[in-house]
């Protein structure tokens, strides 16, 4: 492992994003705009609903957005020949993944700060627990999206396929994370499935933070999500082959 290579990769990924103003703007502002839309939807009907659904969305956005951005970026790296070039140089595969995780982690920090601040100040989202913790959960969740995106990009041959992994990987987690039906009210089989999906733990952590000041359970959920991140990164590293057919 080399901190120099990790830093070089992170700087490079952020420079690429900086050249792409539209993607940058969407990354940073779109989640806040969507949360605002949700707030507006419920404003005249059920003001309590926003407080119940809002925290779950704070977990879902960074995950979904980072999953998409990372899977497309790494797929490009695989198909453009730059990955082949990098892997014949003195680089460890974890350096590359670490660089990606650092760059997108930083984007997740800014994105989550914007979304959380807009939600809690402008939209009046009630959060009982510490707001800093909310941001932390959102960032780890963004990293989960990055790690899964890296892994999944190995199975896509084109950007079309990579984008199709979004409904395949993200939407089942979204349906079963407790947003639509509380997890303990799901049919037993689905509840078990929900128990092994990482997004469920991120949403649980957000919901706990919105209703209580105790952080013990949140740390436990966060540890589960972090475990999934580590696991997906190791699997992702295994898909970066120095030699290909």
């Amino acid at each position: 492992m080399s901190a120099r290579v990790t830093a070089a990769v992170a700087v490079r990924v952020l420079t690429q994003l900086r050249h792409d103003h539209r993607t940058m703007a969407m990354l940073l502002l779109l989640p806040a705009l969507l949360v605002s839309l949700l707030w507006w939807m419920f404003e005249d009907v059920d003001t309590g609903a926003f407080d119940r659904v809002g925290p779950a969305l704070l977990a879902i956005f960074p995950f979904t957005v980072m999953f998409l951005v990372t899977s497309v970026t790494t797929l490009r790296e695989r198909t453009s020949g730059t990955l082949e070039r990098l892997l014949v140089l003195p680089t460890a595969r974890l350096d590359l993944l670490g660089g990606y995780a650092a760059a997108f982690g930083l984007v997740a920090v800014v994105q989550s700060l914007v979304t959380v601040l807009v939600s809690t100040t402008l939209l009046g989202l009630e959060i009982t627990g510490p707001v800093a913790m909310l941001v932390l959960v959102a960032v780890v969740d963004g990293l989960l999206g990055t790690a899964l995106g890296l892994f999944v990009s190995a199975f896509a041959r084109s950007e079309f396929q990579a984008v199709q992994f979004m409904p395949a990987v993200v939407i089942p987690q979204l349906l079963l994370c407790g947003l639509f039906v509380p997890r303990d009210a799901l049919p037993p089989v689905l509840e078990t499935v929900s128990d092994v999906l990482p997004l469920s733990y991120a949403v649980d952590a957000m919901l706990t933070l919105s209703t209580s000041t105790g952080t013990g359970e949140v740390w436990r959920d966060l540890a589960v999500v972090a475990g999934f991140v580590a696991g997906a990164l190791v699997l992702g590293a295994a898909t970066l082959r120095r030699r290909t057919a």
Partner: peptide
Amino acid sequence: QAAGVYDDL
């Protein structure tokens, strides 16, 4: 042959 460069940099 494919150059292997970052087109957006």
